[in-house]
Simulated assay, not measured.
Amino acid sequence: MNIASYSNSFGAENHSFLGARAALIHEVQRGLLKRPRSLVPWMLYDAEGSRLFERITALPEYYPTRTEREIFAESANEIVAAVCSRNPAPVRLLELGAGTAAKTGILLDALSRLRKRVVYIPVDVSPDALDAACDSIACLLPHVQLQPLVANYVTHPPRLGSFNGTTFAIYIGSSIGNFSPEEARTILRNLRSQLRAGDALLLGTDLVKDEATLLRAYDDRQGVTAAFNLNLLHRLNRELFANFDTTCFRHLARWNCAESRIEMHLESTRDQHVFIAGAQLGIHFEASETIHTENSYKFTHARIYTLLEDSGFCFQEVWTDRREWYAVTLARAT
Rank of each mutant, 00 (worst) to 15 (best):
H15G: 08
A20D: 12
R21T: 15
R21E: 14
Q29A: 09
K34M: 13
E48R: 05
E54A: 03
R55Y: 02
T57I: 01
T57C: 01
E61G: 08
R69Q: 10
R69M: 13
A73D: 13
E74S: 14
E78W: 02
V80H: 06
V83L: 06
G97N: 07
D109S: 15
A110F: 07
K116V: 09
V119S: 01
P122W: 02
V123C: 15
A133I: 08
A133W: 03
C139N: 11
Q145I: 14
V150R: 07
S162H: 11
T167A: 08
I172L: 15
L191S: 07
S193Y: 07
Q194N: 08
D199M: 04
A200I: 03
A200K: 04
L201M: 12
T205Q: 14
L214C: 11
L214M: 13
A226V: 04
A227Y: 00
N243T: 05
T247H: 05
L252R: 05
W255N: 10
E259L: 09
S260I: 01
I262H: 01
I262K: 00
E263S: 03
T269D: 02
R270M: 13
F275M: 04
G278T: 09
A287W: 01
S296V: 09
H301A: 13
G312H: 07
V318W: 00
R323F: 02
W325L: 13
T329W: 05
A331Q: 11
A331S: 15
